[in-house]
Computed example of a mutant assay.
Amino acid sequence: MEIRFQPALLQEVIDSFVEKTEREGDPTYYKEFHELADPIYEKFSLDDREAEFKKLYQYLFGTWGFSDIVRDAFDEFPQLKERIGIVLIKGVLKEDQEGVDILRKWGSVEQDLAKQFEDKGLKGVGIKLIPRRFYDPALTRYCRHELMHIADILDETFGYDPDTKVGQNPGEETLILHRYRVLWCLHIDSRLLREGKESMLTREDRFKEFRSWYRKIPPAQLKSVFEGLWQADQLTHAELVEMATDTLRVMDRALDVEGGELPEVQNKVMLMPGFPCPLCRFPTYSWVEDLENKLEKHVLDFIRDNHPGWDTEFGACDRCVEVYKLRADGVM
Rank of each mutant, 00 (worst) to 15 (best):
W64V: 01
I89E: 07
D68N: 09
R104F: 09
D48Y: 07
C143Q: 04
F77N: 08
D47V: 11
R83H: 04
E24W: 10
T28W: 01
K94S: 10
D119T: 12
K120W: 06
R141C: 09
G91F: 08
A138N: 12
T140I: 09
L56S: 08
T28E: 03
T140S: 09
L36F: 02
Q97G: 06
I127W: 04
E146P: 05
Y142M: 14
V100Y: 03
R71M: 00
T21R: 14
L103W: 09
V109F: 12
F53D: 13
P39T: 06
L93K: 13
K115L: 13
S45M: 05
D136W: 03
I130L: 02
D96Q: 12
K43A: 13
V92F: 02
D112W: 07
A37H: 03
T140V: 11
E22V: 11
E98M: 15
L46I: 12
T140W: 02
E42R: 13
T63C: 00
R132V: 05
L36S: 07
G99K: 08
L93A: 13
K123L: 09
K55I: 07
E110R: 08
Q116E: 14
G85T: 04
K20A: 15
H145K: 03
K115E: 14
D136F: 06
E82D: 11
E42P: 02
I130W: 01
A51S: 15
G62I: 01
E42C: 02
R71E: 12
D75I: 01
Q97C: 03
P27T: 03
P27W: 08
